[in-house]
Simulated assay, not measured.
Amino acid sequence: MNRAVALRIAACGLMGLGAALLIAALLLTTYTKGKIAKIPLNLDTTLVSEGTGTAFDPASLSAEKFSVDRNVPVAMQQQMSVESPSNAEVVTLQVGTSLRRTDRQQDTGLLLAMVDTVTMNRSTALAVSSDNNPGGSVQKPRGMEDQKPPTSVALPHEGLTYRFPFDTEKKTYQMFDPIAQKPFDANYDGEEDVNGLTTYRFTQNVGYDADGKLVEPVKYASLYEDDVDSTVKARASVWGVPGEPDEEITMNRYYAAQRTFWVDPVSGTIVKATDHGYQYYARDPLKPEVTYVDYKVTSSESTIESQVASARDERDRVSLWSRVLPITFTALGLVTLIGGALLASFALRAESTLIDPGLDTADHGFFDTQGIQVPGAEAKTEKLPAQRPSDLPPDRPV
């Protein structure tokens, strides 16, 4: 194989590699991002929020009058894990949420506990359902000493729950509230920096208007069969309300909330949240009479740091496959294509010179040595002069 053929083969190889790199960059941009930008299947985290509030004292259930304490420390904890069904398209999150007074121990401090399960699309974060899966469920309450397996009741979810979609937009989303058991608007409210991460801030009102006024509270949806925690009958003296002390008064439990979410717009991760929840007993929904709990909690610093780190990891993963690699492959592809084209041109010149060396003498001189030609047939040689007869020695006959 001569040098010209080898150069031509190398040029074809380079141009083929360049084309392959450009095609790979196009596929990474248009196809791979949709496969990468999805909620991870290995979520396993605990989110903690802390604050203060006014809270009912469960120990007063057996007392002569219900007791409500003010300015007590409260903490909300959410344990999030992935359950079945989870696959390439959907993920099922099981979230155990508890709200407790931290100045009490075990049952005496527990104010709220629920285990919510939702199946959502891994790209859009929207709840999904099928014939075999209603899209969500909630566990029935159990006592601390209950050894029976937990049982769940179907609770179809709508909209978003616990996460926002990848490439979150500056608009209003429907965010499901598992306590109210229906979705409410989460409105875009601006950008804000959280630990060096630019986030979108969303606000949600459940039963409140934009000014924080109670306008349409939700009747608390009990998970007990007899609604024992949502409809309560007691004497006026026990309730601590005006009227005949022995008068039996029935009150319903109502719920309202105000929330703020700080969301990473790339991954949809909620990196920080504040939650103001209000649950109370009343005969008229808009006239609270006995507070069950009125609290405001904010994500702890450790939770914020963990969520920001998680959002950055997801950002880096998406950026690697949707930006870094496509740009790198595009640059390498263009360089390789240009290099292959130049090498192909060089190979053609070399091949033409081997076929007819004279074709190369005009201007390029491929096999010329610095442009100097030394034709052997025309090289000048030195001629020695012949001796004339008169110059011969006298004693030598002619």
Rank of each mutant, 00 (worst) to 15 (best):
D316W: 05
E64W: 09
P385R: 09
Q258P: 09
T168W: 02
R317W: 04
S67P: 00
D193E: 15
D275A: 13
E244H: 07
L348S: 11
F202I: 09
G376T: 13
T172F: 09
D131A: 15
L342K: 10
S129I: 00
A25F: 08
Y173N: 10
V138M: 08
G333L: 02
W262T: 06
A362H: 10
G18W: 05
P141I: 05
L286T: 13
G212F: 00
A25C: 11
D360K: 09
E314Y: 00
T54H: 06
E216I: 00
L126G: 03
P393F: 12
T269G: 06
P40V: 07
I327M: 14
L93A: 03
E191I: 12
A341G: 11
R388L: 14
V82A: 04
N195A: 15
V194Y: 03
M1R: 08
A6K: 14
A25S: 14
L320P: 08
P285L: 01
A309L: 08
V115K: 05
F166E: 00
V91M: 03
E83A: 14
L99N: 01
K380G: 05
T260G: 13
A256H: 01
R104K: 15
L47I: 12
N42K: 12
L332F: 14
T29K: 12
L21C: 14
Y31M: 06
G51V: 08
G136D: 01
S129P: 01
S237D: 15
D227C: 05
P156T: 04
R163M: 10
F366H: 11
F346N: 12
T336Y: 04
K65Q: 15
T29E: 11
S84K: 15
A20P: 03
F346Q: 13
P85H: 07
K287E: 15
V194I: 15
Y292L: 10
E301M: 04
A6V: 11
H276Q: 13
A331P: 00
Y31K: 09
Q258W: 06
L22A: 07
G371H: 10
V266T: 07
E248I: 04
T353I: 03
V308G: 06
T298R: 08
L22H: 07
A311I: 02
K272T: 05
L286H: 14
S152F: 11
V241S: 11
G340C: 00
T303G: 01
S306K: 13
M80A: 10
L332H: 04
L342Y: 03
G340W: 01
T46S: 10
S137D: 05
T361F: 08
T92Q: 04
V91Y: 03
A6L: 13
D229Y: 00
K219C: 02
G243P: 13
A37V: 01
S129V: 01
T298M: 08
P357T: 07
G340I: 03
E305T: 14
